[in-house]
Design a protein around this nucleic acid. Structure first.
Length: 465
RNA sequence: GGCUCUAUCGUCUAAUGGUUAGGACGGCGCCCUCUCACGGCGCAAAUCGGGGUUCGAAUCCCCGUAGAGUCACCA
C-alpha cells in the first residue's frame, strides 16, 4: 500500500450527539490514516434539513477533540457543495442515466405498499416511466440503473461479498428540495476529496450494489470498502441506539473516563491485534492496527470492561497528571498527597472526585469516632486498647526527627506486632480517619503531621476511657 | 416475504487443518492485611445443530437453526 495515498474520512450527519458506535467508526478510520501517514477528513453530511439538530456540528467536533481524534481537513459541509452534486447530476442526465421522477410521493408510497402486500421487495425501477420531461429541479432526480446484474466486490473486513439484482434500483440522486441524497453525495465527495478507504457500518452492505452501479455510470474506480461490525446494546442483540441507552460520548468525559481509555476500549471492541495485550496507548494502537483483523460479527458494549480499562489507564497516569485531570473535572484544587492515595482506588475521575469529598475528607474534617467504632475491629477490651493507644501516643511523641509514614511505621509497627496488631492499629487508624475504612494509620499520620496526629489520638484516648 | 451478513466461555476475543481450545473482563475462592483499596495465586466457564471433505475440522464445503442488516425525497 502506498502510504502517501491513504485518505479516510468520518462523515456523521449532524442529527445530535455522537455515541460509541459512531465514535468507533471514526477511531478505525483515524487509526488507519495515522498508521499509513494518510489524511483523515471530517465531513458533515447535512443533506437532510429535517433531521438536523442545531449545535450538532460543534458538539461532534468537541467530542472528537476530546478523544484526540484530529482531522486534517474539514469540517466540510455537504450543504456547501450543492454545485458539485449538480455538476455530476448533469453528467448523468447527459448520458441518459438520470431522469426526473414524475410520480407524487403518494403514488410512490402506493407502489411500496403494493410490494409489501405481495411480500416482494420494493423496486422503483419496475415503475420506471417510459418517457420523462427534462429535469427542472422541482422533482426528485433518479438514477437510471444502466445494467441490472449481480455485483461482487471485495471488502477489507468481510472478503468477497455479493448481492443480487434486487439490490439495484433507480434511487434518488437529488431530492425535490435540491439537496442530494446520501447515496449520491458521498460518492461525489469521496471522489473529489480523493478518499481511498471507506469505513462504514454493515447497514450499508445491501446498498453497496447501488453505489457500485453509480460508480460505473460515472466511470469512477470505487474506493476500498471496509465494513465495520455493529455495536450492540448491553441487553439483547439489537444495534446500540439512543433508546437502548447509548450515551453521548461527552457524557463519559463528564463521568471521568479518560479519552485514551475510551479509545483503547472502543478499538478493542471489534478488533484485536496479535498477542494478548489489553491495555494500549494511542500510539501503540496506531502501530498495531490492522484493518483485516477487524471482527465480522457485532459486539456487545460491556460497561464493566470499559470501567476496568479506564482504571488501568488511571493507574498508569503520572501522579501529577492524575491530580491535574482530577482538578479539571471537579473544578477544585486537589491536594497532591490525597490524590496519590486515591489514584489506585478509583475507576473513574468522577469516582475519585467523590472519594475526596466522602471517604477521604479526613484532612479537612476533624473526626470524632465513637467508642464502638474505635473498638469495632480492635480485638481488645476498652481498657487495654486505651493502654495501647496511650503508649502509641508516647511513641509518636518521642519522634524527634522526620515524620513520614515509613518512619512512623518503624516506631509503631514492632510494638503493635508485639501486643497485637489489630488492638493497636485499628483504634489508631480510626482515631486518625474517623472511618471504618481508610488507608493505614502510618500514611494517615504522615499526612496529618505530628501535632494533629497526637491531637486526634489523644481525643480518641479520652473517648476510650 | 426477497436480498444479504454473521455465529468460540455470561461478555470482549486468540487459535488462518494438528493446542490439554489460550488471554482479558465479570463471578467465585485463597493469599497479602488492623479495615478498605491495590496487588498476587487459583477455580468454574465456550467451538449453534446435522452432514460431508480429510489421516486429522473451531478452522474448508453443504443443509438447517438462530440473530442481525436492508428493501426511504434517513444517513
Amino acid at each position: 500500500m502506498n502510504p502517501e495515498r491513504v485518505v479516510t474520512r468520518f462523515a456523521p450527519s449532524p442529527t445530535g450527539f455522537l455515541h460509541v458506535g459512531g465514535v468507533r467508526t471514526a477511531i478505525y478510520a483515524w487509526l488507519f490514516a495515522q498508521k499509513y501517514g494518510g489524511t483523515f477528513i471530517l465531513r458533515i453530511e447535512d443533506t437532510d434539513k429535517e433531521r438536523e439538530v442545531a449545535g450538532s456540528i460543534e458538539h461532534i467536533q468537541e467530542s472528537l477533540k476530546w478523544l484526540g481524534i484530529n482531522w486534517d481537513q474539514g469540517p466540510i459541509k455537504q450543504s456547501d457543495r450543492l454545485d458539485a452534486y449538480k455538476k455530476y447530476a448533469r453528467q448523468l442526465i447527459d448520458k441518459g442515466l438520470a431522469y426526473p421522477d414524475p410520480y407524487t410521493e403518494e403514488e410512490v408510497e402506493k407502489f411500496r405498499q403494493e410490494a409489501e402486500v405481495q411480500k416482494k421487495p420494493f423496486l422503483y425501477r419496475e415503475h420506471r416511466p417510459a418517457a420523462t420531461d427534462a429535469w427542472d429541479g422541482t422533482k426528485p432526480l433518479r438514477f437510471k440503473v444502466p445494467e441490472i446484474k449481480r455485483y461482487t466486490w471485495h471488502d477489507l473486513v468481510r472478503g468477497e461479498l455479493s448481492a443480487g439484482e434486487e439490490a439495484l434500483d433507480d434511487f434518488i440522486l437529488i431530492k425535490s428540495d435540491g439537496y442530494p441524497t446520501y447515496n449520491f453525495a458521498h460518492i461525489v465527495d469521496d471522489l473529489e476529496m480523493g478518499v481511498t478507504h471507506i469505513m462504514r457500518g454493515e447497514e450499508f452492505i445491501s446498498s453497496t450494489p447501488k453505489f457500485l452501479s453509480l460508480y460505473a455510470a460515472l466511470s469512477i474506480t470505487p474506493p476500498q470498502i471496509a465494513t465495520m461490525p455493529l455495536i450492540l446494546g448491553p441487553d439483547g442483540h439489537k444495534k446500540l441506539s439512543k433508546r437502548d441507552g447509548a450515551k453521548d460520548i461527552l457524557d463519559y468525559r463528564k463521568e471521568g473516563y479518560l479519552p485514551e481509555a475510551m479509545i483503547n476500549f472502543l478499538a478493542l471492541l471489534g478488533w484485536h491485534p496479535e498477542g494478548e495485550q489489553e491495555v494500549f496507548s494511542v500510539d501503540e494502537l496506531v502501530k498495531a492496527f490492522e484493518i483485516g483483523r477487524v471482527q465480522k460479527s457485532g459486539a456487545k458494549f460491556d460497561e464493566a470492561k470499559l470501567l476496568w480499562i479506564n482504571h488501568e489507564h488511571i493507574k498508569r497516569l503520572s501522579p501529577e497528571d492524575f491530580a491535574q485531570r482530577l482538578e479539571a473535572l471537579s473544578g477544585n484544587k486537589v491536594d497532591r498527597a490525597l490524590a496519590a492515595l486515591i489514584q489506585d482506588r478509583a475507576q473513574t475521575l468522577g469516582e475519585a472526585a467523590q472519594l475526596l469529598t466522602t471517604e477521604f475528607d479526613f484532612l479537612a474534617q476533624e473526626p470524632s469516632p465513637s467508642k464502638e467504632l474505635l473498638l469495632q475491629g480492635a480485638k481488645a477490651e476498652a481498657v487495654d486498647a486505651a493502654t495501647y493507644l496511650a503508649h502509641a501516643i508516647e511513641l509518636v511523641g518521642s519522634m524527634s526527627e522526620g515524620f513520614t509514614a515509613e518512619e512512623i511505621k518503624e516506631v509503631i509497627f514492632p510494638y503493635a506486632t508485639d501486643v497485637g496488631r489489630s488492638a493497636v492499629l485499628w483504634p489508631m487508624r480510626v482515631a486518625l480517619s474517623g472511618k471504618e475504612k481508610s488507608p493505614d494509620p502510618f500514611t494517615l499520620a504522615g499526612l496529618l503531621g505530628r501535632e494533629r496526629t497526637i491531637a486526634r489520638l489523644s481525643r480518641a484516648l479520652a473517648v476510650l476511657k
